[in-house]
């Protein structure tokens, strides 16, 4: 330890100081986050009577999740909807986010205003935005209906939230409106970080705009694309408030908009339609949600790491 030469030797109570700094936070995190994480793993292996833990049943709860009615229908249905959330977000939100981010990074006219404006909805409470859009989607008096009428497209207008075919997408569109500023600004920051001389020399060598983007900019912002992909994945698995505000806890109509989040909440705490909380199945569901988050995050990090380019 040659550094002790320079270090003043006042560190007799170092260990106590570390404890002093770390302990308050560590206790809160352990009690409120780490303990419940492990407890739900454990809880999923027991049978439950209300909120009382009963006998050890092994993986029985997970089996029921996929074999017992109604779960064997609700779980795949919810998973499908979460997939819709993920792919729509990747295809629309992140692709347009990248386009917007790119245009802003090229200082297109008005970029400062666009930047601030597009990001604004990110700060708004999901639940309030959801209710607002629910009013706008109203088939009789909603703003969208009126706009369709004004444009002479009234016959194409419909109860977007009442139709099982369109309901999930109607909610997803609200969420894209709310969130698109986030990928836009993350991509913008990444694109702005690319050294300018790189791009300029390519430009002077006569590379086309598309070539500069696809061969230089895009490979260099892959870390941000990875971050956004992981966040989109985690966000899509955890969709809850959006559906709660616009389609209710039961994912109406007829579970068409149900997601893992709403299904989990209903199972754990009950709702008007299915009143009794089922802690055993709920815990099994929560474990599945954890594993999905974990597996997908790790997988996409590994996938993108192999494609990362360093300057």
């Amino acid at each position: 330890m040659q550094s002790t030469l320079h270090k003043p030797a006042f560190n007799k109570y170092r260990f106590l100081w570390v404890l002093f700094f770390v302990m308050p936070g560590l206790i809160i995190v352990s009690v409120v986050i780490i303990y419940p994480l492990f407890a739900s793993l454990l809880n999923s292996l027991y049978s439950w009577n209300g909120f009382e833990r009963q006998a050890f049943v092994g993986l029985e709860n997970f089996k029921s999740l996929f074999t017992k009615f109604p779960y064997n229908q609700r779980v795949p249905n919810a998973l499908m909807n979460n997939l819709k959330w993920f792919f729509s977000a990747m295809l629309i939100q992140n692709v347009f986010g990248l386009l917007f981010g790119y245009l802003l990074s090229r200082n297109i006219k008005g970029h400062e205003i666009y930047k601030r404006l597009f990001f604004m909805p990110v700060l708004l409470p999901i639940i309030a935005v959801g209710f607002l859009w629910k009013l706008y989607y109203n088939p009789q008096f909603g703003m969208f209906t009126k706009i369709f009428e004004l444009l002479g497209l009234a016959r194409y207008s419909q109860a977007w939230l009442g139709n099982a075919e369109t309901a999930t997408y109607a909610i997803i569109i609200m969420n894209i409106w709310r969130w698109i500023g986030f990928p836009t600004l993350v991509f913008l920051a990444a694109l702005d970080n690319i050294p300018e001389d790189c791009l300029e020399s390519a430009h002077l060598d006569g590379a086309s705009e598309w070539k500069i983007f696809s061969k230089i900019s895009f490979p260099l912002i892959i870390p941000s694309i990875m971050v956004i992909t992981v966040l989109t994945l985690i966000g899509s698995i955890n969709v809850f408030e959006q559906v709660y505000s616009m389609a209710g806890l039961d994912g109406s109509p007829n579970y068409a908009t149900d997601t893992l989040g709403t299904l989990f909440y209903r199972t754990a705490f009950g709702s008007q339609a299915s009143t009794i909380p089922v802690v055993s199945i709920g815990s099994a569901l929560s474990v599945i949600i954890y594993f999905l988050c974990l597996i997908f995050s790790v997988a996409s990090i590994v996938f993108f790491q192999s494609k990362e380019v360093e300057l």
Binding site: V29, V32, I33, I34, Y35, P36, L37, A39, S40, N43, I234, I237, N238, F240, G261, F264, Y265, A268, V279, G282, S283, S286, I289, Y290, C293, L294, S297
Partner: peptide, 12 residues
């Protein structure tokens, strides 16, 4: 707590 959603641990 960063990767794993606290919401899913709501029962315990």
């Amino acid at each position: 707590g960063i990767v794993l959603p606290l919401k899913a641990a709501i029962i315990p």
